[in-house]
Design a protein around this nucleic acid. Structure first.
Lengths: 148, 148
DNA sequence: GTAGGTGCAAAGGATTTGCTTAAAC
DNA sequence: GTTTAAGCAAATCCTTTGCACCTAC
């Protein structure tokens, strides 16, 4: 899981955004924190269901929407038509490197602000408001073992 | 359109990949080249239909798949659940800045290779094989006119 | 007490696929 | 002549939504 400790009330509150901290949503948030690497809504749902047996898939979708809005989850591409998410409860702006072998994820420092490319863009008449950067590759284990 | 000239046979060939250069596909490729900024498959289809009245939507989807595989089109996000594409028949590696006001697109030099961030990632045990970077912002016209 | 959340089931909608005919090579 | 693509329509399948009931606040 992303943390070796339990999530604090404050983190749970942030994850739920303005919404209510229902029993189900808290379980879903904890399940998301517990996911290893990237995951789909369906995978998260299966995991959360272990804590909340009757959990509906729509509830998981709604929780994911809330977590994505609050910045607790980030979208990092898609796999077979399903959107891939990562636990991302990091205060500061950063990006991710995804292992295409096992889905493992590491956060990386954003290389853009200092870069000349941005200046060039501004000179071309654009004002940059946002950017998406995701790196893909192989982690140490997968490189040695061969991509699965 | 992306070019002020007609597409060469070589460019058309590249766009179609290994596939056949059918009448329909060539028209779709030219229509894609003629799109202003980002576009959805549906929008491309409407445009291509002006050259090929009976064109089926499935044919456009298949052409888009071929162009995306050959690198002639790039995916640059989505709008209301529809994937957004850009004409991208550029030999060298680059990225895009998208105007969120009007969809206008400009190519930008890739800032990553020289960056320390990549080194840091490698030190963390990852081998980077690929990366996606897209910038979003406002072009000169939209900034002055106010975002639509 | 009430707005917002949940579960279920049905709807939505982009994209894909099966099949027959036609055209590229 | 073969093989691949087109066109049409049906199927897929992720995601959203309507609704009646429940619960966090």
């Amino acid at each position: 899981m992303a943390h070796d400790r339990e999530l604090t009330d404050r983190e749970l509150r942030t994850a739920c955004g303005e919404g209510r901290m229902s029993h189900q949503r808290l379980r879903i948030v904890r399940a998301a924190d517990g996911m290893a690497g990237t995951f789909t809504v369906e995978e998260l749902h299966l995991s959360a269901k272990r804590s909340v047996p009757g959990l509906g898939i729509a509830t998981t979708y709604r929780a994911v929407t809330a977590m994505a809005s609050s910045g607790t989850l980030a979208v990092v591409g898609e796999r077979n038509g399903r959107t891939l998410y990562v636990w991302c409860a990091n205060d500061e702006h950063h990006h991710h490197i995804i292992c295409t072998g096992c889905g493992r994820v590491a956060g990386i420092h954003c290389p853009l602000p200092e870069d000349d490319a941005l200046v060039a863009v501004k000179n071309a008449g654009f004002t940059v408001t946002r950017h998406d950067l995701t790196l893909y590759g192989l982690c140490d284990a997968c490189r040695k073992g061969g991509e699965v």
